[in-house]
Simulated assay, not measured.
Amino acid sequence: MRSDPAPTAHEGPAQADSSTENPTLSTDLNIKALETLILSRLDDDKAQDIVHIDLTDKSSVADSLIVASGRSHRHVGALADHVLRALKDHGLGKARVEGLPHCDWVLIDAGDVVVHLFRPEVRSFYNIEKIWAVDAPHRMPAATSN
């Protein structure tokens, strides 16, 4: 039986230093690191139209929502697989996944960051960015068209 519980996705890797000077700052840094990891992985894998929505004061479910598209079922599946591998490689392997068998819409719940990966026609049908965004979503510069 393990005496130390495994960290959840939103907690990040276990820290040897248990400093409690400013736990909010520590949590914010973990969330930003998680967002950066996921966004860079999606960008490296040529995900299309990547959108990052800050949900900090909008929802108690998550602090961040990332939405991206893949060109095909296979591309969406590969994007999901690579994000999950990156999370696992960084000690955040407890993410929950839905939709992998069909790869029309794959949801990855990494704790404080939720990732939605779509095929373009499925994404336009559900339009979840509009549900969460009060103002224009924060688009990555590489994802915008000229």
Rank of each mutant, 00 (worst) to 15 (best):
Q15R: 14
A16S: 10
A16T: 10
S18T: 15
S19R: 12
T20W: 03
T20F: 05
T20N: 09
E21F: 14
N22C: 08
T27Y: 11
L29E: 10
N30E: 07
N30T: 05
K32Y: 14
L34R: 00
L34Y: 03
E35D: 10
E35L: 02
E35T: 08
E35I: 07
T36L: 15
T36K: 09
T36S: 14
T36E: 06
L37V: 10
I38N: 00
S40A: 09
R41Y: 06
R41E: 14
L42A: 04
D43A: 11
D43H: 12
D43P: 01
D43V: 04
D44G: 03
D44W: 00
D45H: 12
K46E: 08
K46T: 11
K46M: 13
A47P: 00
D49A: 13
D49N: 13
V51R: 09
H52R: 12
I53V: 11
D54K: 02
L55F: 11
T56A: 11
D57P: 00
D57K: 13
K58C: 07
K58H: 09
S59A: 15
S59D: 04
S59T: 13
S60P: 01
S60D: 09
V61K: 02
V61A: 14
V61P: 00
V61E: 03
V61L: 15
A62Y: 03
D63R: 11
L65Q: 07
L65M: 15
L65Y: 06
I66W: 00
I66N: 02
V67I: 15
A68W: 01
A68H: 00
S69R: 06
G70Y: 00
G70T: 04
G70A: 09
R71F: 09
R71D: 05
R71I: 14
S72R: 06
S72V: 07
S72M: 08
H73A: 15
H73L: 15
R74A: 11
R74P: 06
R74K: 13
V76H: 04
V76G: 06
L79E: 03
L79C: 05
L79M: 07
D81H: 13
D81F: 05
D81W: 04
H82S: 13
V83E: 01
V83L: 08
L84F: 02
R85E: 10
A86H: 01
A86G: 10
A86F: 01
L87P: 01
K88W: 05
D89V: 04
D89I: 05
H90K: 15
G91P: 02
G93T: 07
K94I: 14
K94R: 14
